[in-house]
């Protein structure tokens, strides 16, 4: 019982896991980019950022937002896509690569 409770505490709550999985899945659905490729993109972005600061890769969000152009009423083709990413930073102090 106690083991189970500590295991639960250690793990992220399932609601948050669901939200994160879902956001990722919808980004893949909406862009048509396969989840596998999207995961590579995510990991690559994380790798680059983490050269500069300490980030929490597991909390990273990757989403595509669409901004409708002024003339977009009729045709959904002229909306432009914006890739948005949010990465939790553990430590904002830059790593020692800047001379």
């Amino acid at each position: 019982m106690k083991d189970r409770r500590t295991a639960v505490l250690r793990k992220k709550r399932s609601g948050a896991i669901a939200a994160r999985r879902l956001k990722f899945l919808l980004t893949a659905d909406q862009t048509g980019i396969p989840p596998e490729v999207l995961a590579m993109l995510r990991d690559d972005i994380c790798r680059v950022i983490s050269r500069y600061m300490d980030v929490d890769a597991s909390g990273m969000e990757l989403r595509v937002r669409y901004s409708h152009g002024e003339l977009s009423g009729e045709d959904s083709a002229d909306r432009s896509a914006v890739l948005c990413t949010a990465i939790p930073v553990r430590n904002l102090r830059l790593k020692g690569i800047i001379t």
């Binding site: 709550r13 399932s14 609601g15 948050a16 669901a18 939200a19 879902l22 956001k23 919808l26």
Partner: peptide
Amino acid sequence: DMVRRGDMMSVDDVMDI
């Protein structure tokens, strides 16, 4: 009750997504 203990997405989560 499940939302409160974090084991279900809240209505806010769903709206946000």
